[in-house]
Design a protein around this nucleic acid. Sequence first.
DNA 1: CTGTATCCATGGCGATACTG
DNA 2: CAGTATCGCCATGGATACAG
Lengths: 236, 236
Amino acid sequence: MSGYGQFCPVAKAMELLDERWTLLVVRELLAGSTRFNDLRRGVPHMSPALLSKRLQRLERAGLVRKSVDGSHTAYRLSPSGVELRPIVEALAGWGVRWIGDLGQADLDPHLLLWDVRRTVDVERWPRSRTVVALRFSDVETGAARWWLVCHDGETDLCDFDPGFEVTATVTSSLVALTRVWRGGRSWAGALRSGEGGIDGDADAVGRGPAGIGQAGWAGVPRPSERELALARPAAD
Amino acid sequence: MSGYGQFCPVAKAMELLDERWTLLVVRELLAGSTRFNDLRRGVPHMSPALLSKRLQRLERAGLVRKSVDGSHTAYRLSPSGVELRPIVEALAGWGVRWIGDLGQADLDPHLLLWDVRRTVDVERWPRSRTVVALRFSDVETGAARWWLVCHDGETDLCDFDPGFEVTATVTSSLVALTRVWRGGRSWAGALRSGEGGIDGDADAVGRGPAGIGQAGWAGVPRPSERELALARPAAD
DNA sequence: CTGTATCCATGGCGATACTG
DNA sequence: CAGTATCGCCATGGATACAG
């Protein structure tokens, strides 16, 4: 018995949505990914077998529609799936307010840049090809260097040097850039503390992270220290 | 590893909230239950061991505060827990729109009346003691007869005859009253089809289900047939 | 009334490898 | 690129009994 045996619509909704990974797949679909491997990038650590299973389940439940066009497969949310957007956004807002503590295990340069790629504010960048190199000061070789290549309104992410001239180079610790992108930490503060830096034509790229953009929920107001204290496990 | 290894706040939120039963416990707390056994009534089929475990987890996460006063224990949501209300309500709205099909296993007279008890519109009832007897025509003995006793603005639920004079008697199939209470089915329709009936002083009790009230999300607009068709597994 | 303790079966899921 | 196949573990949680 995997159901709850309740008619309550919260229970009926959660029978589907409380399965591990499911809502993260929905989140990635809402963010615009349609391809299997794009979804994988957006939901790292999820095995392909499980992703496949979840997509099938969501399709059977009518939240996702799969369309095959030649060798090209796309998954898109149906109307009922799209209606989960306010819920996912509310969860993001809640999470950003109340689960602020990030462990080292929560940090992931691949995922951060996969998300950053979507928030680059191309309008603020030069119309000619612009390349921002990113370097994480505290990440092991292999995931420490990245390049955002912006051209014709498209942004590509490379984990290898694409060879073009670099407009500016942003250096930062992984945790600092993650915090800045999530909101709640300012790039100015990261610069001051020495956790971040920018070289090259900073103005051209909107002074680094400002031009890279922020998460959609970055602007959600954080609880005050007083509110946080009230919500804490409580000495009672 | 039970986490998702992601900094995404949706992932961080779901690490806590996608555990089985958790959000239903939150729902019941939001509805106003504070006592362990009241929570159990609101979340039937959940073992007490698991309820205890979830409450502890929620307390450690700062969403719930436990207060002990003599032999009286109360669980209340903290500010961060209360902030889940819009999410739970949105889930209820989503569920009621898109997961309309109720199986026989989802029906439960105990839970229905536990919920109904909260929505009785005492203002509409006489100031003197009012007793509504409910009888499910299709439920096995033991859970087929119920009494709502309303007095001094309080509503009590009995599964035995309290002995007072009955103001009115509502008869219905379990599925019909569940649908009416959830919204999406009208009591008038249930009466017409013969699935429901009311005897006695119907006017005094707001003509039955109208006075008994409806779920908070009963008014959520349901998708049209056309929308439903679009969201269905799709013949593509 | 408010839980805790214990036990056990299940199946979810992580890992890895492999295919059209 | 877009998945399937297989395997095995162990944690989840259901059931039951019991305790302060």
